[in-house]
Amino acid sequence: MENHTFGEDILILEGLKVTSQSFIPAFILLLLVYIFIMVSNIGLVALIFRCRSLHQPMYLLLCNVSINDVFGATIIIPHVLRDLLISNSLRHIHYTDCAIQAFCVHLHASASHTILMIMAFDRYVAICNPLRYATIMTNGMVVMLSASAWMVSLVMVLILVGLSVRLSRCRWIIFNPFCDNASLFKLSCESVLINNIYGLTYTVVLLGSSIGSVTLTYLKIAVVCVLSKNKVLNRKALQTCTTHLAVYIILLVSGFIIVILHRFPQLSDHRKVAGVLGHVALPALNVVIYGLQIKEVRQRIIISFHNSKLAVMEVK
């Protein structure tokens, strides 16, 4: 009876296949990247909140990106780091923890799209309606947009994972380095038709609204820039929109790569690596792209670094 209970509650994780020669370099590299993600993103949020000149809608919305990146990286990277240090026989997870991790994984992915959608709206208002920008993008509007981005993702993912948790289980192996919704419902021998229907609807609604809204927004911005002969406006639009668009394209490409690899079981190892990299590379790239490309943020980082250097010299 105890063994039966243990089997029902504990799942076996199929981790990354790392050789004995490469697991130490992989562990060190992953740890350094995680430290960079945490320090840079938290530092960026602190910098924006500390500097009054950065208390603008664009930067306040950017805080959502950094918070989501810290959230997404923390879900996966410490878990993978732990599994790199232990043997395959010890790679297990409690079902409740697996369900929570799956929920967080999809919340991070969904929020990545909804947050970039509201940031696209902010750029649209700033470039297409500059005279009304201050009256439209108030602090209340920023809070409402941010809350909406998180709440929509929360509700959609809650239903997604809830439909999988309700199923009984007849399998105990997760063919992935971490838990996601597909891992959960594949544990069941029941019909998963409802899960597949809602999962497809969830994907179509999320990606359709995301791609559609961002595409429409940038088409309108492009029309305004083409018709306008204001070089300052066009330069500002190019600078801010290129940064946002680069982050969005990277997000889409990484997501589509994982979806495509799911269609090829023989490439399961590549899919696992791609899944982990999606929670490692994106948070690291986002902070670099936004932090270094936005002039005001870059200047503040240089000033802060210079002041810290002077303080150290004075202490010496």
Rank of each mutant, 00 (worst) to 15 (best):
M38E: 12
V143M: 13
C179K: 01
A237D: 08
A26R: 06
C241G: 09
S112M: 01
V161K: 03
V142F: 04
G255D: 02
L184Q: 08
K309P: 00
S40I: 04
L84Y: 14
P130K: 09
R263Q: 13
R50Y: 11
K220M: 10
M1Y: 12
L206P: 00
V39D: 11
A147V: 14
K17T: 12
S40G: 00
K231V: 14
D9F: 13
Y34N: 08
H55I: 02
T138E: 09
T201W: 07
L233H: 05
Y290E: 10
A120S: 15
I76Q: 03
D69C: 15
A147M: 13
L16F: 06
I302D: 12
L29A: 15
S22C: 03
L187V: 02
L187P: 00
V80G: 03
F6P: 00
Y198S: 04
A281T: 12
K17A: 12
S188W: 04
K309V: 08
Y59I: 05
V192T: 15
S228A: 10
I136G: 07
K272M: 10
L187M: 04
S53E: 11
G275N: 01
C170D: 08
V142P: 02
S304G: 00
L81V: 04
F71E: 02
V226W: 15
T74C: 06
S308H: 10
G208W: 07
V45G: 02
I86F: 06
C51D: 14
L60C: 09
Q266M: 11
Y124F: 15
A126N: 06
F185K: 00
S308E: 11
I48D: 05
N3V: 07
G15K: 02
Q299K: 13
A111M: 09
V105Q: 03
A46G: 06
M141N: 07
F6Q: 12
A126P: 01
L216T: 05
C241I: 02
I35F: 14
P130V: 08
A109W: 02
H262Y: 15
I86P: 04
V287N: 07
V157D: 01
H306E: 14
A284M: 10
V142R: 08
F103L: 09
V70L: 08
V226Q: 12
Q101E: 10
A237G: 09
D69H: 11
G255Q: 02
S153W: 01
C189K: 02
F103E: 00
Q293W: 13
L160M: 13
A99I: 05
F185Y: 15
D97T: 02
L282I: 15
C98T: 03
L62W: 10
L227Y: 12
K295A: 07
Y34G: 04
L163H: 08
V80N: 03
Y202A: 04
V45L: 05
T96E: 10
C98Y: 01
C170Q: 06
I35V: 13
I136S: 09
G162W: 11
I28H: 11
I174P: 00
G278C: 05
S22E: 13
L292G: 11
V205R: 01
V165P: 01
I42Y: 11
D9W: 10
